[in-house]
Design a protein around this nucleic acid. Structure first.
Lengths: 305, 305
DNA sequence: AAACGTCCATCGCGAAAAGCGATGGTTTGC
DNA sequence: GCAAACCATCGCTTTTCGCGATGGACGTTT
């Protein structure tokens, strides 16, 4: 792979060489490096052994040592090598401080409500970090190549997860569709309704509706919440949406719309944050999980209030 | 100078890491590197100690190990570091094979006769070498910053030298100025003459002329040999030039000019090659000295023939 | 000229580390 | 379950690292 001898080069020796070149003396270089003069002398001897020739001329006496032509070649590349090593150390430090890149998979309502806050706080703590979001959603959520994945449900495979919050379904309808207070599920039977496409938790929710004797007529499907709500305002029908989506669209302050709890309540949609099991996380990912849990808890509290 | 820890990085460990990343297994990497599996395991452990975290996830069993986010950071820079180290080794090899740069100081006739051959042979052996020639000639020849210096005389200071050849002075004159055979120095007294400027050996030569009762009238001085010879052809006067200069200008095949030995002969001009004492030479410089001596010897032989 | 100061090389020693072989624990696949 | 593949760990030997002390070389000073 690498030619023999390449890995015999020691950065310590190159650092000693650079210090000597700067100071003009083995002894002063040793002092600067925190070594003994004899140690530095041996380090240079070792370096000269590996490169196969002297790198300094030692005139003897108080004259400063001078670099040889071979030494100049070694030093030129050596300084470069040391600079690169320093860059490596810097990169590691930045990484451990939370820098670096993180790839997060997300979906619909999480993108609208939770994620903005998470990203914001993360960037506050780590202005230089590189956060990449992915919302492509094939039928199966893809966690390979992602560090973190938000999803409303569990995922099979070698995955760990944190439950972020319970997201109950609520009814959004026109101002005068129902009187204040909870709405009986049965009242939704055969009612016109707009809804999300049948991905994620949506099929489960509709089954639960049906199981409770509510078979609404779905007159329109869209993944865009704003579109759905416009349809509700237009009187096309009502919508059963999770609380997160409702909050994300500021429905509560919309005088044309009203939100009702459902009775009996549908099974809540559960929001999870997933990551691959058995893999060491980056500090950035670890922190992102913590922040996501925090944010979710705050949201949960806000909902109950 | 360098932050602590930078010089603790070992190229050996990075090489092991790269091999593992390629092979997906500590054992195979060990085989490739010529180490034992346990050794590689410890190398990675050491690396992980210096960077402060795991660089590989070991799933256990026949699954390939996988790099961690931290490991990815380290590996990215590590490969770079290894590539640079390889460049260093390459540069050293090239240098030892005679590559690299050489700075040569020269003057007038050496530039014309000796140096072209030396440079030619050197470049034949080392096509990639970087030969730089300097002909600036302040009153004092400057050997600092030069690897090699041609000069017609000795130099004071900490300098070693090789005598290349004796370069006798000869008389160049018009076809019919003197009969064939040696010319008595006395015959040059008050004769019109063109000559070099009073640098290098020229003052010494003119003193020697005077000392032998010949005080020619110098009617023109120029450092350009061709100019001087044109003047001789034009009948302005004759010229006392060293053999090297005469050969460099192809005087011998010029039917308008004739070359005479002088009687008694003037002290020869001695051509030396100098280099700073007590300094390790580059192989290229060493070889250049050898070649220069060879070329000078050939020229010496050619002259005597 | 002799004494001094500065400098690097070298020697001996103790501590640390590298590398090896053998062993043991884990996980996967049959 | 059993076998196979894999990595971690332990004990051991050999090598290396770094130190302090000493000595030789050179230039400067007296």
């Amino acid at each position: 792979m690498y030619p023999p001898g390449v890995t015999d080069i020691e950065l310590r020796h190159l650092a000693a060489m650079a210090a000597i070149a700067d100071e003009g003396s083995f002894g002063r270089a040793a002092a600067r490096l925190g070594y003994t003069q004899s140690t530095v002398s041996q380090q240079i001897a070792a370096l000269e052994r590996t490169v196969g020739g002297p790198v300094f001329d030692r005139p003897g006496g108080p004259k400063p040592v001078r670099i040889t032509p071979l030494g100049a070649v070694v030093l030129e590349h050596g300084r470069d090598l040391l600079a690169r090593a320093e860059k490596l150390a810097d990169a590691v430090d930045r990484f451990k401080a939370g820098g670096g890149r993180i790839d997060i998979g997300t979906f619909q309502s999480v993108s609208n409500v939770i994620l903005p806050v998470v990203v914001c706080r993360l960037r506050e703590e780590q202005p230089d970090c590189d956060i990449r979001l992915f919302e492509e959603e094939p039928d199966q959520p893809r966690i390979s190549d992602l560090d973190l994945l938000f999803y409303d449900g569990r995922i099979d495979g070698d995955v760990e997860s944190a439950k972020l919050l319970d997201d109950p379904y609520l009814l959004v309808c026109g101002n005068d569709a129902f009187p204040d207070g909870p709405v009986q599920l049965a009242q939704l039977d055969d009612a016109p309704m707009v809804a999300w496409p049948l991905t994620c938790d949506q099929p489960l929710m509709e089954q639960a509706l049906a199981h409770n004797g509510a078979r609404p007529r779905v007159v329109f499907r869209s993944a865009i919440n704003e579109t759905l709500l416009s349809m509700v305002r237009a009187g096309m029908g009502s919508a059963v949406l999770p609380w997160l989506a409702i909050r994300g669209a500021n429905v509560e302050s919309d005088r044309q719309l009203r939100v009702h709890e459902l009775c009996p309540a549908l099974p809540v949609r559960e929001i999870y944050l997933h990551w691959r099991a058995g893999r060491t996380q980056s500090p950035l990912a670890t922190r992102a999980i913590e922040i996501a849990v925090e944010v979710a808890a705050e949201l949960s509290g806000a909902r109950r209030a």
